[in-house]
Computed example of a mutant assay.
Amino acid sequence: MAITIKDVAKKAGVSPSTVSRVIAEHPRISAKTSRRVKEVMDELGYHPNMMAKSLVSRTSRTIGVILPRPAEELLLNFFFYEFMRGVMAQLTRAGYDLLMAGGNNEREELETVTRLVRGGRIDGLLLLYSRASDPVISLLRKEDVPFLLVGRSLDYDDVPSVDNDNVQAAYDATKHLISQGQRRIGFVSGPAHLAMTQDRLAGYTKALTEAGLPFKQGWVVEGEFLLESGYRAMASIMNQPEPPTALVVIDDFVAFGVLKGLTELGYRIPEDVAIVSFNNIALSELTMPPITSVDIGTYQLGYTASQMLISTIQQDPVQQRQLIPHRLVVRESSLRTFSPV
């Protein structure tokens, strides 16, 4: 015979309506009562009908994550897995499920989000990118759907977001190279339309300007967040009459390609070319040589993003924009001291 709410209520010593409120995560139910009821539910093997619960509460207890295009590129980058580990830790703790979606182009992406939103399949959305004139953000604002942006909006000042201070992070990375005696410093960039790319380029430029060092357009190469992109960039940036002797690289995964390209061209790291990158993924310290990288708190970015979104969904007070601290992890790839030339 199936266990019912009445069975749970009787054993827990509460009313059936209290059990229903515990299942619905009602804020007025005390932690003690909620814990007791959930213990009884586990003991009796009672599992609430989540579909019926959703129909009554008009919530899905599901968070959507919209992957940037092309999603297959993101799935190749170890940053994504560490970020999603933080997201899942918070969602599991709060009793939410995860739904990942995307599209091959802007039209498909908008259609996907429209279907999820108007079909009531999600309570809120995490956007893993920040680009200008984004129709998805326009739709979410129009439909009054809770969402959170990982990054900085290029169009709105009031978009809830979690981010790093990417200007300062790139400034710190470039200053580190300058402190090692470097004077010809290049930048291996990400896609120019992304806010993160623009901010890191600004921090790099600021550090050069303060030190009285030249900014040369030929030392800045735009690419994607792929190993192959960093590899290809070396054929361009190092094939100049006066190539840079140090590089700030937008992402560790891209830096792996930079290492490969430089090695094939006969350059030694860090003796000939010093490298600083971003994200501090686990493999960064296993390369030859280990890569100096800016740790942006990737796990914390994911955890905080989902935590802020859930608070927004539950209409709790939440800080509009939160910055996750960064730190420079110095390894062998950048440690070269020499006299300026």
Rank of each mutant, 00 (worst) to 15 (best):
N105A: 10
S284W: 00
A31S: 13
V117I: 03
V117N: 00
Q300S: 03
T337K: 08
R200C: 03
A195Y: 08
T312N: 13
G181P: 09
S229R: 06
L127W: 01
I313S: 05
T209L: 02
L75R: 08
Q315P: 14
S284C: 05
N164F: 01
A24R: 14
Q180F: 06
R141A: 12
M308H: 11
N164C: 11
S20C: 07
T4V: 10
D251P: 05
I313Q: 07
T92E: 11
R336M: 02
R85S: 13
G151T: 07
A132H: 11
N104H: 14
D316H: 15
L44V: 02
P244A: 07
I237E: 05
E73M: 14
H193G: 00
T62G: 03
I66L: 15
T245N: 10
L154M: 04
R121N: 07
E106I: 07
E108N: 05
I137V: 13
E143I: 09
P135C: 00
L110G: 13
I237A: 10
L335P: 06
F253E: 13
T263Q: 09
T197K: 04
A24C: 03
E271F: 08
G103R: 02
N164W: 00
V162M: 03
T287P: 06
A12P: 03
Y46G: 09
V87G: 00
E222W: 07
V341I: 11
K38A: 10
L323I: 15
Y129P: 11
G203P: 12
R268C: 03
F338V: 05
L259E: 06
S189G: 08
I310H: 00
Q300A: 00
S15H: 12
A207H: 10
Q198F: 00
N280F: 01
E264R: 12
L226D: 01
I250K: 05
R268L: 07
I250R: 06
P146G: 08
E332A: 15
G102S: 15
E111R: 14
R336Y: 00
I63P: 11
D172R: 09
E242N: 13
A24L: 02
L265Y: 03
T209V: 12
E264A: 14
E72N: 14
S284I: 08
S311Y: 06
L194N: 07
S229P: 12
Q322M: 15
A207N: 11
T114G: 09
M196R: 14
S130D: 14
I237V: 15
Q319M: 14
A192D: 11
